[in-house]
């Protein structure tokens, strides 16, 4: 299976405060890749860099086999993009907006566009500036889907939408993905939503990609361990220790990544007692991952 997006050593600086640092990321073809991260972590900037809308300071990007920025317009013909904010001309009607976009895409499917317009209950003569937030979101999704793209890049597509519209939009997206086998890169800070639809995740924070893994590994790979008589000298750990803190008495709580049942042996060898292994849900895992990135283990107050 080839990769839809390959990013290597990507760096970009915007002002004094914010930078994307050494981003390396791979989105396999045919997968739904959740791009997670808190607000301001650099998700939107990374997506805009990948689509050639911002010039990278350093690094390489390959989109559907085309190098960015040289061949980005060829790649964009096969990409459906839903930006974070409305990007459509306010004075145009829904119908005019559809016709405007149709003119630029060689594979535009007018019948499909019309079908989606009806499904989304968008009125053709309504001007864009009169659309509700939900309607605008649906129109952007329509425009992203109507030219049968191989890759969908969705930047917070359901942010601010009510649950009914969100369900409609996601249903259309999933139907398209299942019927076409397209790749989806979806950025969001709504973890639960991502959990339902993504099979890969990448987690951004402060302009860096903290982790990239299959959803299953992310979901099952981060555990909270309750350890008695925890060793002071940790030695070589068989897992990644994300955080460590005192829970009650002489008991400690460790959050670890890459946990396997056979790793219990480490505690036996260290003359400690592993009392409990607790599964974390996606949101807890995400929070622990961010916390560990922001405050390394040896630095926490609880670590003493």
């Amino acid at each position: 299976m080839s990769d839809a997006i390959i990013v290597r050593n990507l760096s970009y600086r915007a002002g004094k405060e914010f930078a994307i640092r050494d981003l390396a990321m791979t989105v396999p073809s045919g997968c739904v890749y959740g791009f997670l991260g808190p607000n301001g972590s650099g998700k939107t900037t990374s997506l805009r860099l990948m689509l050639g809308m911002l010039p990278a300071d350093y690094g390489t990007i390959n989109l559907l086999g085309h190098d960015v920025p040289a061949g980005v317009h060829k790649a964009l013909a096969k990409i459906g993009y839903v930006p974070e904010r409305l990007h459509l001309y306010p004075q145009l009607t829904v119908d005019e907006t559809i016709r405007y976009h149709a003119a630029f895409y060689p594979d535009w499917d007018s019948a499909r566009a019309e079908q989606l317009r009806r499904e989304f209950a968008l009125r053709a003569e309504q001007t864009v500036d009169r659309l509700s937030k939900g309607e605008a979101g649906k129109l952007m999704m329509l425009l992203a889907l109507a030219h049968n793209p191989d890759l969908l890049v969705l930047d917070e597509p359901t942010d601010g939408l009510d649950p009914v519209v969100r369900r409609d939009v996601l249903a259309a997206l999933l139907e398209y993905v299942s019927s076409r086998g397209a790749t989806v890169l979806i950025s969001s800070h709504l973890i639960h939503e991502q959990e339902r639809i993504c099979d890969h995740v990448g987690i951004m924070d402060d302009g860096r990609l903290l982790a990239e893994m299959p959803m299953a590994a992310f979901r099952g790979g981060i555990k909270r361990l309750r350890v008695s008589k925890a060793p002071v000298e940790r030695g070589a750990l068989p897992f990644t220790l994300l955080s460590r803190g005192v829970s009650a008495g002489r008991e400690e709580e460790w959050v670890v990544r890459g946990w396997q049942p056979a790793m219990k042996e480490y505690f036996v060898a260290a003359e400690s007692e592993l009392r409990e292994v607790i599964d974390l849900d996606l949101e807890e895992s995400f929070v622990e991952l961010l916390r560990s990135a922001r405050t390394p283990v040896g630095m926490t107050g609880e670590d003493n």
């Binding site: 689509l51 050639g52 809308m53 317009h73 060829k74 790649a75 964009l76 013909a77 993009y81 930006p83 904010r85 409305l86 990007h87 459509l88 001309y89 306010p90 976009h101 630029f104 895409y105």
Partner: peptide, 17 residues
């Protein structure tokens, strides 16, 4: 002015140089 108010996302995401 119109494109600038939309941060040029529209034109830049179209498949034309």
């Amino acid at each position: 002015i119109v494109d600038m108010s939309l941060r040029h996302v529209g034109p830049l995401s179209l498949p034309v140089p």
